[in-house]
Simulated assay, not measured.
Amino acid sequence: MSARIGVVTFPGSLDDGDAARGVRLAGGEAVRLWHADPDLHGVDAVILPGGFSYGDYLRGGAIARFAPVMESIAVAARDGLPVLGICNGFQILCEAHLLPGALTRNQHLHFRNRDQWLRVEAIQPVWTNAFTDSQEVLIPVKHGEGRYVADQRTLEELEANGQVVARYIQGNPNGSLNDIAAISNAAGNVVGIMPHPEHAVEALTGPSIDGLGFFTSVLKHLAGAGAQA
């Protein structure tokens, strides 16, 4: 039986269908989760997709973090449930304090939409095990509030603990500190990434298929966990 990966839909989500397609292409079963339903329906992992949840009123992710589904996700994540937040999902994870720091307005104050090179910095067991150390990947970015910021102590801890999952190379699209494109929590089960791996899963529609590795990684992790159980 394939792993069941929940994809949350908030009012204003744009990329939930793309994330679900990424799950299916990787070989998993995509389960649609609704923002107002606290029941996670027994999923093995969760993806918070990109978009503009609740219209990004106040700031990106600030309202979505109070959605009933997020209360359940926060509890499950602290118990080890794999969670991936993409773009707006990354913002939600920071607002929910499942990841440190914050995503702020792009330093140049312009929306940025382009194919972006990243370097995978941390080969961790849950979301990046399909990559090789320092692998360079091409994945689209599309955001206006993607600049990752944190205080100096947090930045030092992220670097020292190997929690910087991916870093921008060949140009920083938003002014993120330390060129950070993706981070994880200390346990490694929660990852936030500003670029969109779900838009790089098919050669026909994306600049590469590099993004598929995030989806195959969690399926491989879950298969290994199931075998050990």
Rank of each mutant, 00 (worst) to 15 (best):
G192D: 06
V191R: 00
H110I: 14
H108D: 15
P173H: 02
G42F: 13
N174I: 02
L40C: 05
V75Q: 14
I169S: 01
G213W: 09
V190T: 05
S13P: 04
G188M: 08
K142G: 13
T132H: 01
A64Q: 04
G55L: 10
G175N: 03
T216Q: 05
Q163A: 11
H35L: 13
L81I: 09
L158C: 09
V164Q: 01
V7F: 00
V75I: 15
V83E: 02
T205H: 10
I183K: 03
G27K: 00
M1K: 11
D179T: 10
L109N: 09
I73D: 00
I193G: 00
A229K: 09
G213K: 02
G17M: 15
E29K: 08
P38R: 04
P100C: 15
R153M: 15
K142V: 11
I86V: 15
F10H: 02
A62K: 03
D56W: 03
G50I: 06
A225G: 08
L98K: 02
Q116P: 00
G144E: 12
P197Q: 05
V141Q: 04
S208L: 07
F131G: 06
P140G: 06
Q135D: 07
D151A: 08
D179E: 12
L177M: 15
G211I: 06
G6H: 07
A74L: 14
I169K: 00
V120S: 01
N106I: 08
G55N: 04
A186G: 09
V190C: 04
T205C: 14
A62F: 06
V43L: 07
V165L: 04
G55H: 07
A223T: 06
S184Y: 00
D16L: 04
A76W: 01
A181C: 07
D179Y: 07
R112Q: 13
K142H: 09
E156F: 12
A187H: 08
A96H: 04
N113E: 11
S217W: 01
H196P: 09
G101E: 12
I47F: 01
E156M: 15
T9R: 15
A64E: 00
H41M: 15
A203P: 10
D151I: 12
D39E: 13
V191Q: 01
G206E: 06
S134Y: 01
P173N: 05
R24M: 13
V31E: 03
W127S: 05
L103Q: 11
Q228I: 14
G206P: 02
F215W: 02
R147E: 10
L98D: 02
V141K: 04
Q228E: 14
I123D: 01
V141R: 01
V23K: 03
A200M: 07
A67D: 07
Y168L: 10
H41L: 14
Q152G: 12
R167F: 06
D56S: 05
R21I: 11
L219G: 04
H35Q: 12
T128F: 05
W34P: 10
R119I: 05
E159P: 09
Q107R: 14
G28T: 10
D44L: 04
N178F: 12
A67M: 08
Y168T: 05
W117E: 10
Y168N: 04
S2F: 11
H199V: 13
P82V: 01
S217A: 08
M194N: 05
V137E: 03
G226H: 11
D79V: 12
P207K: 08
L14V: 13
H110S: 14
A19S: 13
A74N: 11
N178L: 15
A166D: 08
A227I: 11
I123F: 03
V83F: 02
